[in-house]
Design a protein around this nucleic acid. Structure first.
Length: 654
DNA sequence: CTAGGGTTAG
């Protein structure tokens, strides 16, 4: 070993530390010098020098700042003939796993002559960390082939992967191996077996394991109770809970959230009140329980009563508002959270608030959030960036949406779906289709949501044939169309004026058409003045949603367009008799950091008269130029700009 | 190299 470190080896190793590729301080020559002095010391102390060298490498590993550095050290490890060391290699693999690079980790592993159980275990752990469960199972098979004896650390990891893959057959094999080799007394192994079986819905098998465990600690009890809950056996879970020799806060919370899951808020609350000790999580569980069961009042009340709050508490309340479509409340609560200084928002907070901005068109706040997110370290967070793309797209800032999309380190399926959908609904349909092609070329597999965006783009461009081709191509990606996709195709035909084709398509659909489908057909009937199909669509609509006055209103408009006023007046009477009133569809606009709501012919604004006067002159000017901005003369341009300015200044939120 | 409880994007 010492020989291997003579100057020639030193030079070789040093060469691999190309300064350009590796600009960090840790790898300055001084570092290597330390290595030499260590070896010198070792010679004096008569300590095996290769052990010290290995230690040196391991401490170097810990200071790595990227995968490149790891590769540099790897080169040195090989230079020193340590690529088979049972001491160094596991640490190496663990580091690569930490950097989410299991490909390199596997390379290091494969280069090793006789990997032992520990080395296998770190590989398992790495795969597990990175969600590569298939690899865990196949590597375990290899371990068996090579007759490497697993340790008690091995089984929990392998079993967990079997559970994630719902590969019960494999799992049972591992189980029998555990049984034969005397690992069944191990608490960790038993616990993961329970989790695996109950995760696959086999609570009876899980209970068998639980019953056969010689030593059951509270973790095992919790897992078993949780297993019953996730398999839908709340009673069994409760019985076991009442029998448990010991109950800690985790177990209490598990049972409380079990009752919440089945919607039994009363029992959940009763248990919550009985808890001898509540931590923040107990409160949060109750809070989000009220939210998901629609009791917003109880949710708000509980939030006020909480002795301590963390991010999850705030996210719970904000999420509750978002879930009830109360987006203004989302924003005000978020502002409260900021001014409270109690806790810092996290990525989940930002995502929820950004999506509220998207729904409200609160572009200014959205932009502020963009900067804010970066300043608190969520630059490069895929959740936040996808939400930003969505926010910009929904607020009409397509260019910014594309910019954020392009600046992302990695675009996942949701990113692609968001940008395609965003472009499609904002009049950039051909760009949307370009993005779809790019996505396919990039090797990203589209899903059902992708095709909603693509079909929507075709609808907006009136590309009936191309849209149909996309619809049929879904089978190539093994995606079976859902009602939404059929709805898109109906829309595709209907908006293009092919009402008969649309109706035929509805008739041949494999599922029953829902209200959305008929409403879209009805909407097209008005534009293309087809009273016949409209009557049919309305008949279906009344059957599906008898209380929705929007349907009658639509038909009445159709008759109105056709000049058949006698029917219109009859319908008006019929509508009055339903005693339902249609809530007018409203729009939102952000002006001066406030959001104004308005609907068609709205007169609630204090300056409504001026606003409408301005709108009239704008319309007149636009008509005069035949909708073509290029054809405007400078005088008209000035007029339009000042009118627009008037709009901006006078739409002040009340 | 070990176990049990949470929120988020279309």
């Amino acid at each position: 070993m010492i020989d291997a470190l003579e100057p020639s080896a030193y030079n070789l190793a040093f060469k691999s530390l190309d300064k350009k590729a590796c600009p960090l301080r840790h790898f300055q020559p001084g570092c290597i010098k330390v290595q030499f002095s260590t070896i010198a010391l070792a010679t004096i102390a008569h300590k095996p020098s290769h052990i010290l060298l290995e230690e040196k490498f391991i401490s170097l590993l810990q200071s790595c700042k990227n995968t490149n550095h790891l590769r540099q050290i790897q080169a040195q490890v090989i230079t020193h003939g340590l690529q088979h060391s049972h001491y160094v290699v596991p640490k190496f693999i663990a580091q690569f796993a930490e950097w989410k690079n299991m490909k390199y980790a596997r390379q290091v592993f494969d280069q090793m002559l006789d990997p032992n159980d520990v080395t296998y275990n770190v590989m398992f752990k790495g795969y597990l960390q990175n969600g590569q469960h298939k690899e865990v199972v196949s590597l375990f098979r290899k371990m068996m082939e090579f007759d490497v004896m697993p340790s008690c650390y091995t089984f929990p990891m392998v079993l967990k992967s079997c559970g994630k893959l719902s590969a019960l057959c494999e799992g049972a094999q591992v189980h029998s191996f555990v049984f034969k080799n005397g690992f069944k007394a191990n608490k960790f192994v038993g616990n993961t077996l329970i989790e695996m079986y109950s995760g696959a819905g086999e609570s009876r098998l899980a209970y068998k394991v639980f019953g056969e465990m010689p030593l059951r600690n509270i973790v095992a009890w919790t897992s078993m109770i949780n297993g019953f809950i996730s398999c839908g056996y709340m009673e069994a879970a409760r019985n076991l809970f009442d029998l448990a020799p010991e109950r800690d806060v985790v177990l209490w919370n598990t049972v409380v959230s079990g009752y919440i899951e089945i919607g039994d808020m009363e029992t959940a609350r009763k248990l919550f009140d009985e808890m001898p000790l509540k931590d923040v999580m107990s409160w949060n569980t109750m809070l989000s329980g009220y939210a998901s069961n629609g009791d917003l009042e109880a949710c708000e009340k509980l939030f006020k009563e909480m002795p301590r709050r963390n991010v999850f508490s705030w996210n719970g309340l904000i999420g509750a508002y978002a879930g009830h479509a109360l987006f203004f409340e989302v924003l005000t609560t978020f502002k409260q959270m900021l001014s409270d200084f109690e806790v810092l928002p996290n990525d989940a907070t930002l995502v929820t608030v950004l999506s509220a901005c998207a729904r409200l068109g609160a572009l200014d706040l959205g932009k502020w959030l963009h900067v804010y997110a970066q300043s608190i370290g969520y630059k490069g967070n895929i959740f936040v960036e996808n939400a930003l793309v969505d926010m910009y797209a929904k607020c009409g800032e397509i260019e910014n949406a594309v910019n954020v999309f392009r600046s992302m380190v990695k675009n996942d399926l949701v990113s692609w779906n968001t940008i395609i959908g965003g472009l499609a609904v904002h009049g950039h349909a051909s760009d949307a289709l370009d993005f779809f092609d790019e996505m396919i070329k990039a090797g990203v597999k589209p899903d059902a949501v992708t095709f909603i965006g693509v079909l929507c783009a075709c609808t907006h461009m009136g590309l009936v044939d191309r849209g149909l081709a996309y619809f049929h191509s879904m089978a190539d990606y093994s995606i079976s169309p859902q009602i939404e996709h059929y709805g898109c195709v109906v829309d595709l035909y209907a908006r293009a004026g092919c009402l008969d084709e649309a109706l035929n398509f509805v008739k041949t659909m494999p599922m029953k058409a829902d209200a959305v489908v008929w409403a879209c057909l009805l909407g097209a009937c008005r534009i293309y003045k087809n009273v016949e199909i409209a009557e049919l669509a309305l008949e279906k609509l009344i059957e599906l949603e008898p209380g929705n006055p929007a349907n009658y209103l639509m038909l009445s408009n159709i008759y109105g367009d056709a000049g058949r006023w006698e029917i219109v007046s009859k319908l008006k009477v019929a509508m009055r008799d339903t005693r339902f009133r249609k809530t007018p569809g409203c729009s939102l606009i952000e002006v001066h950091d406030k959001i104004v709501e308005f609907y068609s012919l709205d007169e609630r604004h204090p300056e409504a008269e001026e606003v409408y006067a301005c709108l009239r002159s704008l319309t007149k000017l636009i008509r005069a130029t035949s909708f073509s901005p290029e054809a405007m003369n400078p005088e008209q341009e000035v007029a339009i700009n000042s009118s627009a300015l008037f709009f901006a200044k006078h739409c002040i939120a009340r």
